[in-house]
Simulated scan of single mutants.
Amino acid sequence: MEMALDRILGADTVAGETERPARLVAAMRHAALGGGKRLRPVLMRETARAYGRDDGGVLIAAAALECIHCYSLVHDDLPAMDDDDMRRGRPTVHKAYDEATAILAGDALLTLAFDLIASDTVHAEAAVRLRLSRDLARAAGLGGMAGGQMLDLESEHRQRSEAEIRTLQAMKTGALIRYATRSGAILAGASDEDVARMTRFGELVGLAFQLADDLLDVQGDAAILGKAAGKDAAAGKATLVALKGVDWTRRTLDELVREADGLLASLGARAEVLSAIARYVADRSA
């Protein structure tokens, strides 16, 4: 993934482009090549691999998804949003460059994602590429990640029910993770039943990721996290950890992993990596 992103975010133009401003390229590279778990592209590639496909087209689709994720982090870190100075152990894009450049870097990463997902190498059939593009837009946009971020902002210093918190988290965090596993199955030509199975698997991993993230915000070490801890409580954000408690959260994480493993049972050894990822997501310390 690092090599693919390094190439995609190079200085050379592609057909239809006029010029790639050096400062914008540098800011995009700062956002996308600064480390990170690469959870979403790994989930997409491992799902596709489990169903029999592992080639450069899947890698390009995975890079598109990671560009969406990186754009969201750049914008989330802005002073008007979460106002974070550190990301992945180094200055956020607006701190390393400036706010205007950070906004443009996020915009460019977002639009680049749809350039990538439309590539002929992603899938031979245009209808499949269109399906992947539409699903990505819905996962990232109004009814997905962006909408979830809006709900999250509206929840600061307000009481929210468990159902409301689950909805905003399913949108803000879960939508792209759900897309990762769903699209991996689609890319590999899996049956409708298997696409539905992996869609549910992604939903479970997405919820587990957010619960673990909320636990880390309460109990984590900023030096290990690479970003500030305790910000959710300071901002009065609605989380299931705050509503239900740490013990409930840990029990729920175990339940999510068990259900996720059950969905993978029919894949046998082909799903070993996916199973390990689900456990890692629930148990992570950073």
Results as ranks from 00 to 15, higher is better:
132 L>A: 04
132 L>P: 05
132 L>S: 05
133 S>M: 01
133 S>T: 04
134 R>L: 13
134 R>Y: 05
134 R>P: 01
135 D>N: 13
135 D>L: 12
135 D>I: 04
135 D>M: 12
135 D>R: 14
136 L>T: 06
136 L>V: 06
137 A>C: 13
137 A>F: 15
137 A>E: 04
137 A>W: 03
138 R>M: 01
138 R>D: 02
138 R>W: 08
139 A>P: 01
139 A>W: 03
139 A>K: 08
140 A>C: 12
141 G>P: 07
141 G>T: 02
141 G>Q: 02
141 G>Y: 04
141 G>H: 00
143 G>T: 10
143 G>H: 10
143 G>L: 11
144 G>T: 03
145 M>V: 09
145 M>A: 11
145 M>T: 10
146 A>C: 10
147 G>T: 11
147 G>R: 12
147 G>N: 05
148 G>Y: 07
150 M>P: 01
151 L>S: 03
151 L>W: 01
152 D>K: 15
153 L>R: 15
153 L>K: 08
154 E>S: 14
154 E>F: 08
154 E>V: 00
154 E>N: 10
155 S>A: 13
155 S>W: 04
156 E>W: 00
156 E>D: 06
156 E>I: 03
156 E>N: 07
156 E>C: 14
157 H>P: 00
157 H>W: 10
157 H>C: 09
157 H>E: 15
158 R>Q: 12
158 R>S: 09
159 Q>S: 11
159 Q>G: 12
159 Q>T: 05
159 Q>W: 00
160 R>N: 07
160 R>K: 00
160 R>E: 05
161 S>F: 09
162 E>P: 03
162 E>C: 08
163 A>V: 15
163 A>Q: 15
163 A>G: 07
164 E>A: 14
164 E>F: 03
164 E>T: 05
164 E>I: 12
165 I>G: 11
165 I>D: 09
165 I>F: 06
165 I>V: 14
165 I>A: 13
166 R>A: 15
166 R>L: 15
166 R>G: 02
166 R>S: 14
166 R>F: 01
167 T>P: 00
168 L>K: 10
168 L>I: 11
169 Q>L: 12
169 Q>A: 13
169 Q>N: 14
170 A>Y: 04
170 A>R: 13
170 A>E: 15
170 A>K: 07
171 M>V: 02
171 M>T: 02
171 M>S: 08
172 K>H: 06
172 K>W: 09
173 T>P: 13
173 T>Y: 10
173 T>C: 07
174 G>Q: 07
174 G>S: 09
174 G>D: 08
175 A>D: 02
175 A>K: 13
175 A>F: 08
176 L>M: 10
176 L>N: 06
177 I>Y: 09
177 I>W: 08
177 I>N: 11
178 R>D: 09
178 R>G: 07
178 R>I: 00
179 Y>W: 10
179 Y>S: 08
180 A>H: 01
180 A>M: 01
